[in-house]
């Protein structure tokens, strides 16, 4: 092979407007960053941040964080288990609640009729609305309405996860092979049979995979719910922090890190096998 055949054809010339747009956008972005940095500069009292007091505070807290106490290990483990259970129950509820919503938000399931499109639109809107609430805010609402208990946390997790799972389920359903569905119809299968023989085998592994992934996220989310009294290990974090028991906070953090890591590993393994 000689070098002439290996040369690439020259790049197509970019039009002036597209070049202008590119540089314009770049400069605009740069200006935005500079402006925001200047904004913080005005609000922050740098002399206070870099003072002896900060260093003293850090000196008091940080060494303690590296000296966990095992005094309250039982209590911490118990509450960690509660946290995991809150996450599990919540994501389990969500993974079931999201199924009908997933079907309703999938365009290929709802047909082209006016009623179908309206239902589709309403469900999408609902899921979008749900997704905008952070779990902690949902938990706040449930703690206020049913009182401070782990169940408030479960509901917060369940509702929050439904928003995400419903959307993901809907997307999974939209990508299935509709020709299989057509083949089932051509067999003389009715709608329910088509669902069980043509659709569910195609979506089940993805549904499970997403549900497990969401459980992973929920474990992390539920560690913090206790801060506002919705059960789980968060309660203990707040108490220990208020009492300045930094060694206890340290223990709690270590337990959380270990549990979350283990769950991430397990869930990654399971999900790899599913698809």
């Amino acid at each position: 092979m000689n070098s002439e055949t290996n040369t690439l054809p020259p790049r197509p010339k970019q039009s002036k407007t597209s070049l202008l747009k590119k540089y314009g956008l770049g400069l605009g972005f740069l200006a935005l960053i500079i402006w925001s940095i200047m904004g913080t500069n005005e609000k922050v009292d740098w002399t206070r941040v870099f003072s002896m007091r900060t260093i003293e505070n850090m000196d008091r807290v940080i060494p303690k964080l590296f000296q966990p106490t095992l005094d309250k290990l039982d209590r911490v483990l118990e509450l960690m288990l509660e946290t995991l259970l809150i996450a599990f129950t919540g994501s389990f509820m969500a993974s079931i609640l999201a199924i009908p919503l997933g079907f309703l938000t999938a365009k290929n399931m709802m047909g082209n009729s006016l009623a179908g499109r309206i239902a589709n639109f309403i469900c999408k809107l609902f899921l979008n609305a749900v997704r905008t609430f952070p779990e902690i805010l949902l938990a706040l609402i449930f703690v206020a309405s049913i009182g401070p208990s782990p169940f408030a946390g479960v509901l917060a997790i369940a509702i929050g996860s439904t928003g995400m799972l419903g959307k993901l389920y809907g997307e999974v359903i939209e990508t299935i092979d509709m020709q299989v569905v057509e083949a089932m119809e051509a067999n003389g299968a009715n709608k329910i049979q088509t669902l069980f023989y043509g659709i569910i085998p195609q979506i089940l592994p993805d549904f499970l995979s997403y549900a497990i992934y969401r459980f992973e996220i929920d474990v992390r989310a539920s560690t913090i719910l206790g801060i506002i009294g919705a059960g789980g290990i968060g309660t203990l974090i707040v108490i220990s922090q208020k009492n300045r028991n930094w060694d206890e906070v340290s223990l709690i953090l270590i337990v959380i890190i270990i549990s979350v890591t283990i769950i991430d590993l397990i869930s990654a393994q399971i999900r790899k096998r599913l698809v």
Partner: peptide
């Protein structure tokens, strides 16, 4: 229609089998 389709089998270009089953 279902009865008709039971008696009229169809074969497609892309087989249209459920791949995971």
């Amino acid at each position: 229609l279902r009865k008709l389709r039971t008696k009229a089998g169809m074969i497609f270009q892309h087989h249209n089998l459920v791949k995971r089953s």
